[in-house]
Simulated assay, not measured.
Amino acid sequence: MSIALAAAAAAVCATVTSTAAAQSAVPEHRAQVRVPGPGDQPPFRYADCVKLAVEQRHESPSYAKWHCDQLVKKGWVKPPKA
């Protein structure tokens, strides 16, 4: 009885490892890389940063200003004009 159980366990292990090997051999579908245009590269405009933060990320205007100020410090956004 234990020999039959060992043979069944070996067969299951062989099936699992061959399935895993087959899955790793299949190439992944990769997302297409979008080539950025001239306006799509940092540093972005401060007004655009605040506008997108409020509209797309649903941030409050005060939080959007704070968020964009943090991005100014990192160099991703141009400082606001006085």
Rank of each mutant, 00 (worst) to 15 (best):
A31K: 03
C13K: 00
C13Y: 00
P38F: 02
A20E: 13
A11Q: 03
P27C: 00
H29Q: 11
R45I: 14
A9C: 07
A20D: 10
R34L: 12
A11T: 12
L5T: 12
H29M: 08
V16W: 01
D40T: 05
R30L: 15
C13H: 01
A20S: 10
P42I: 11
Q32K: 08
A8D: 07
T17E: 09
A31H: 03
T19F: 02
G39Y: 10
A22D: 15
V26H: 01
P43G: 14
A22W: 14
L5N: 01
Q41V: 15
A14G: 12
P42M: 06
Y46D: 00
A8S: 13
A22F: 05
V33N: 15
V12M: 07
R45A: 14
S24E: 04
H29V: 15
T19H: 01
A14S: 10
A8T: 11
A22Y: 14
G39M: 11
A8I: 13
F44W: 14
T17L: 15
V35G: 03
G37P: 01
V12H: 02
S24Y: 12
A31E: 12
Q23L: 07
A6C: 05
G39S: 04
A25K: 03
G39D: 13
A7T: 11
A6S: 10
E28N: 09
F44A: 02
P27V: 00
T17F: 14
A14I: 10
H29F: 05
A9N: 03
L5E: 07
R30N: 04
H29C: 00
Q32P: 04
P36H: 08
V33G: 05
V26W: 02
A22Q: 12
V26R: 09
S24W: 02
P42S: 07
R34N: 05
A8N: 10
Y46E: 00
S24D: 06
A7W: 00
P42F: 14
C13L: 13
S18P: 06
V16F: 02
V26P: 01
E28C: 06
V33L: 13
R34V: 15
P43C: 12
V16G: 09
P36Q: 03
V12C: 11
H29L: 06
Q41M: 15
S18D: 11
A9P: 05
S24C: 04
A14E: 02
T17P: 05
A22M: 09
